[in-house]
Structure formats: C-alpha cells, structure tokens
C-alpha cells in the first residue's frame, strides 16, 4: 500500500520535468530541408534552419545558369539568364508546397519535409 502523498510527489516531479522539456522543445527552431534538382538529378539538400551566413552558388545547365542565394530560413534564385526569369520573379522560397522552377534549365527547388505550409498544393 503506497501512500497517496508519495504518488503526488512522483507525479509532480514528472510534471515539472515534462513541462520544462516541452517549453524547450517548442522554442527550438525546426528543421527545414530543401532539395535542389537539375534535370531530375538531385544536386544537394540544404537545411535552411541551420544556415549561418548567407551564401550563393551557381547551377549550370547547358549554356545557361541560375544563381542561387541561401539565407537562414529562405532561399531564392537571385539571377538567371533564362528568357522569362520566372524563377527569379518567384522571390523567396521558405519551404512550402509550391516549388521554385526554372523551366528552360530544368531546375527545381522543393521542400523535403514539407511541413512549412499547411497546404497540400499551391496554385499560381
């Protein structure tokens, strides 16, 4: 027969610990991984939540190229020599359901674990 008082102490301890852990967990930044494909081939994956300093890199395709700018939490095509430049006009990509695409250069930037939006698909 275990006294009620003991149970109360045990439960209070568990309560405090789990409450503390919960708070810590909810203030942590979540992973946000995007993948960059050129011509169907995976070039690289980047975890946007772990980007320290902004940086750029080039993706070449045939005679053309796209310049990609990566910052913490977001990524975009900063420059491209394709005729329409839709990829540049897209603006910043945060990892949502609507991927960044450069059609002439067959470039795709999309989310790997797409939990950033609540959406299944985005029109536009």
């Amino acid at each position: 027969m275990i006294k009620t008082k003991i149970w109360v102490i045990v439960i209070s301890l568990i309560l405090t610990v789990s409450a503390a852990l919960s708070v810590i967990i909810f203030t942590l930044p979540k992973k946000n991984v995007v993948a960059i494909y050129s011509d169907g081939e995976l070039l690289r994956e980047i975890d946007l939540s772990e980007v320290a300093e902004p940086y750029t890199f080039k993706v070449e395709h045939g005679d053309g190229f796209n310049e990609i700018l990566v910052e913490r939490g977001r990524i975009r095509v900063s420059f491209a020599d394709c005729p329409d430049r839709c990829c540049v006009n897209y603006g910043w990509y945060y990892g949502g359901a609507s991927p960044v695409v450069c059609i002439p250069h067959k470039l795709v930037i999309k989310a790997v674990n797409s939990q950033k939006d609540d959406f299944d698909v985005v029109t536009g």
Binding site: Y93, Y94, S98, V122, T123
Partner: peptide
Amino acid sequence: GNVYVAGKYGGRDWNVGIKSPFGDGKA
C-alpha cells in the same frame, strides 16, 4: 500551379493554397 483536387486526402478535403502575388513566396 494549374490545380485539380480529386476526392479527399486521408478522409479530409485537400488544402489548396493560393500563391501570394506580392512576391513573398508564401501562400
């Protein structure tokens, strides 16, 4: 971006976002 959602997704309606035309990449 030209979308059709048929039926449901895991028993619930599909959640369709409309891209922001103001260039900030979010819905």
